[in-house]
Design a binder for these strands. Structure first.
Length: 576
RNA sequence: GGUUCCGUAGCUCAGCUGGAUAGAGCAACAGCCUUCUAAGCUGUGGGUCAAGAGUUCGAAUCUCUUCGGAAUCACCA
């Protein structure tokens, strides 16, 4: 039970005792007391006025008196207007602290029994990953971690778009203009080489639009299984996969299951027949099949072309059906940009019309685009921020900052490199994940991502500081739970209060599918610690009981920071 | 044109299931390292929460209107 719930239930008892009226604890409004007022939590008494038939302050006064008189957990109160500020006793906070410190799984919510598939990344194999993909990947990986922490059974998946006309364009340009170049011969990462081919094709098309016909011919050959085309396709795709693999590895992204579009693009065709049989789809005279969604405020949606081939939507319908059946899913999250909001609206609606009751369990985690100061990234104008370049740049920034401080002198080089990568990536991941997914975000390539303030490295640094203190305290067994050993100071109570709210934050973040909630929580916790650190000497504390309590407290803080940041996929170093 | 989303400090963002005087960071300015890591801490200045109306004891938060921005509505994926 959270402190808020505890207070609400006691307040409910107070109302019953004072006014003989039942007022459900769930309807009590309890929040953390504002900084400028005395107290831990505040009960808003306005909703109780029609029960008390008294002025707001008087009502607060009466309830406050009853609580302090009848519940030992409350140590003091003050009523200001309609706000009853309540202080909980030191013992209450010590017990709270002890239960957190004694629970290794603190923050892991009980199993929901829900099995959820999260699809994200889903790249095209005709060009390398850019900053937009980074946001997608980080969100997908992080939301997966988040749902796991909230008790779901999560399957991470990706659907690689490895076929289609765009791939053929790269293949065609490579054949005509790249003179057999390979990643080995050029020393270029495979996905970048294929990306160059794609760019080259755009030039060829400009010079002579007829090349498009050649590409379509190539696509037809691919669909027929022409050995030469398939071989080329396989070779170039493999270059891309190898390149992606490196980028994923650098970002720490993994999947439980990878789908390839060349295996799934024909799925969904039998659903079209089913829809026709059910009368929810219609066939036009030219043979094309549609679903009429005008009654739902949308348009008519094509599901089968007049030549009998399927469209993107058809495939998605089939893929969803197969996944729900194969994995017995309770829910499916798609991490896809908000430019596809309409697509997912239609997807859910069509599935519902086909009679699938799980259609409403599909959740489109729709995130905003990453924009540059001058607007959207455009590959034609060369403003795309390349993922590999950015990761490298972050590494170099971290390296420069570290070397300047000289704090890592004497550390082996490979360990330093690992650390630079951890810090650079921490800055990048935090920068992206701290923003509400729904919102579009701005990235200015001219300004480097900050390492100070509300950033990943700030939290990493805080963690390293705590570790440094714990290293120096050999006399006290690390990890020992000395939570109840001593009275807590006001600042320590603030820390315990924040720690105690972590499980709620996980639940809140998970229900909003928002890692940003966790990011901001971790920042608050780190900031609160730094203030505490600044004016409370820990190792110099003469009283052994107080010293152990403090060490327990900071060890618990470090652990909670690690757990929260692990949800974001960010590692915390012991030194930096 | 229809639908959907967004607009909070100079900049980047929190806060949005209605609660007290709207918070951080960056940037600017002024302090704090002989003292557990200064990637830190403290302080100052900075706001018509796009505008207007409504609901309410109470609105940045809910509703409507207007203005501004974005996405989308393909026999593209």
């Amino acid at each position: 039970m959270t402190a808020e719930q505890f207070i609400a239930s006691r307040a409910s008892e107070a109302v019953k005792a004072l006014y003989n009226v039942d007022f459900a604890a769930a309807n009590m409004q309890v929040s953390v007391t504002r900084k400028d007022f005395e107290g831990d939590y505040t009960l808003v008494v306005f909703p109780l006025l029609r029960i008390s038939h008294a002025a707001p302050a008087a009502t607060g006064q009466a309830i406050g008196e009853w609580l302090v008189a009848n519940c030992p957990e409350f140590s003091a109160f003050n009523a200001v207007q309609g706000f009853l500020n309540l202080s909980l006793s030191n013992v209450y906070w010590q017990e709270t602290f002890a239960s957190i410190a004694g629970d290794p799984d603190f923050g892991q919510l009980p199993s929901t029994g829900r099995r959820v598939m999260v699809e994200f990344s889903s790249p095209n194999t005709n060009k390398p990953l850019h900053l937009g993909h980074i946001r997608n990947n980080l969100l997908g990986a992080s939301v997966s971690n988040l749902l796991k922490a909230a008790g779901d059974d999560v399957i991470k998946t990706t659907l690689v778009n490895d076929r289609g006309v765009h791939i053929c364009k790269s293949m065609y340009a490579w054949q005509k203009r790249f003179d057999g170049a390979t990643p080995e011969s050029t020393g270029k990462k495979g996905d970048h080489l294929v990306g160059d081919c794609y760019v080259e094709f755009a030039k060829m098309e400009k010079e002579n639009p007829a090349v498009l016909d050649d590409v379509h011919e190539m696509l037809v050959k691919w669909e027929e299984g022409d050995p030469a085309v398939r071989e080329l396709w396989q070779m170039m795709n493999q270059w891309v996969f190898d390149g992606f693999e490196q980028t994923y590895k650098a970002l720490g992204i993994t999947f439980d299951k990878t789908y390839y579009e060349h295996e799934t693009y024909l799925l969904g065709k039998e659903l079209v027949q089913k829809g026709l049989d059910m009368g929810v789809f219609v066939k036009d005279p030219d043979g094309s099949v549609w679903c009429d969604l005008t009654a739902d405020g949308l348009d008519r949606k094509l599901l089968l072309r007049s030549d009998g081939t399927s469209v993107y939507m058809t495939q998605d319908l089939g893929t969803a059906e197969r996944r729900f059946a194969e994995y017995k899913l309770d829910s499916h999250v798609y991490v896809v940009g908000d430019e596809q909001n309409y697509h997912f609206q239609v997807l859910k609606l069509v599935l519902a019309k086909l009679g699938f009751d799980w259609a409403e369990q599909i959740f489109h985690l729709s995130y905003g685009m990453v924009e540059l100061p001058e607007g959207k990234m455009k590959s034609r104008e060369g403003t795309v921020v390349d993922a590999d370049d950015l990761i490298e740049k972050m590494y170099l920034e971290a390296k420069a900052t570290s070397e300047e401080s000289g704090k890592l002198d004497g550390m082996p080089q490979d360990e330093k490199d690992r650390l630079y990568h951890m810090i650079g990536l921490g800055a990048l991941k935090y920068f992206i994940l701290k923003v509400d997914p729904k919102k579009k975000m701005l990235f200015n390539p001219k300004e480097s991502i900050d390492f100070n303030g509300n950033t990943g490295p700030f939290i990493q640094y805080t963690h390293a500081r705590i570790c440094s203190i714990l290293r120096k305290s050999e006399t006290v067994a690390a990890g020992a739970n000395a939570a109840g050993a001593a009275e807590l100071s006001a600042k320590e109570i603030r820390l315990v209060k924040l720690l105690a709210s972590y499980p709620q934050k996980v639940a809140e973040a998970a229900s909003a599918y928002s890692p940003a909630v966790i990011a901001n929580y971790a920042y608050d916790l780190a900031k609160e610690f730094n203030q505490y650190y600044h004016d409370t000497p820990i190792l110099k504390e003469p009283d052994a009981a107080v010293l152990s309590m403090r060490l327990s407290l900071i060890a618990t803080l470090a652990l909670t920071l690690r757990k929260a940041m692990a949800i974001l996929g960010i590692e915390l170093p012991e030194r930096m």
